[in-house]
Design a binder for these strands. Structure first.
Lengths: 148, 148
DNA sequence: ATCATTATTGAAAAACGTTTTCAATATAAC
DNA sequence: GTTATATTGAAAACGTTTTTCAATAATGAT
């Protein structure tokens, strides 16, 4: 629970930056919600704790959290980057429903293995990957069928 | 060779749109270059054929080519969307070198199979996917080692 | 061929998310 | 406390994409 704060503190000290109540609050807000949040959504949540918090500070802090390994920026093709938790969360890919926008996280060792195999064949050293599968979730496929 | 023009013409007629020299020229320019081109690059190439061609028209036409299935918009995480050929090109994923930016296209049936398996397990109907593997190509990994 | 309708064009402006600038403020080290 | 400087929030700037709009051009009917 407190490990994330230690990670941010270490990162801040390592970089010669400073600890501020704004940074701590934004981390608290970010950690309090599981899911994929845009900067706009994070800013709205942060404003509930500090009405004067600036948009810019949320941007800057989310970049900081990404660099420190606490957050991951993900993009689902709608032009709005979102942040998800990274610490203590194993890598996963995203299945995005194109009707309702719901996003399912899928972790599977096979994907990593396949990535390694394909990369080795091409003399490429893979560092990380992102994969998004777009389609219809159970509920939305149902609607699709009903409408036909 | 001419099939692409037929596809665009059918799409234009089907939608009640109009055939214009600008659209034909932009398609010709797009087809003349294999690779991943940004709108800016496409506009620069188009200007060589028609100095008065507008930026806006290239944007609008590339959207049209995407909708007609001739072009595919791909994003490699640098914030600049690029277009690649889609017609008569089998689906592939992208291995992007984070040092030099080079992009390798990798087609492998295993990825599609894996996608199907994972989707079926979750009662999700996959329609398409995108996968980008980021890492170091042969040349850039060499540099990395030399620098150590 | 001419006309009428309306889609298309290119320039400029607006929109959009993000980054930079800057003066005021807050933090951390001494 | 004093100092050096990192951080903040507002506004401006930024880069890309979309919208607006008047002029133009393509299509179908006459």
């Amino acid at each position: 629970m407190d490990k994330e704060y230690e990670i941010l503190d270490s990162f801040i000290r390592f970089r010669g930056l400073r600890h501020t109540p704004q940074r701590e609050m934004i981390l608290r807000v970010f950690l309090s919600v599981e899911g994929h949040l845009s900067v706009e959504e994070l800013h709205a949540l942060a404003k509930k704790h500090d009405r004067s918090i600036g948009y810019t500070t949320v941007y800057r802090t989310m970049k900081l959290l990404s660099e420190s390994g606490l957050a991951d920026k993900v993009e689902f093709g709608d032009g709005i980057p979102r942040y998800e938790h990274k610490y203590n969360h194993r890598h996963h890919d995203h299945f995005v429903c194109v009707k309702c926008g719901k996003c399912f996280e899928v972790a599977h060792a096979g994907i990593e293995k396949l990535q390694e195999t394909l990369a080795r064949e091409r003399d490429f050293t893979p560092l990380w990957h992102t994969m998004q599968v777009f389609g219809l979730c159970k509920d939305c496929r149902g609607i699709e069928i009903k409408l036909q």
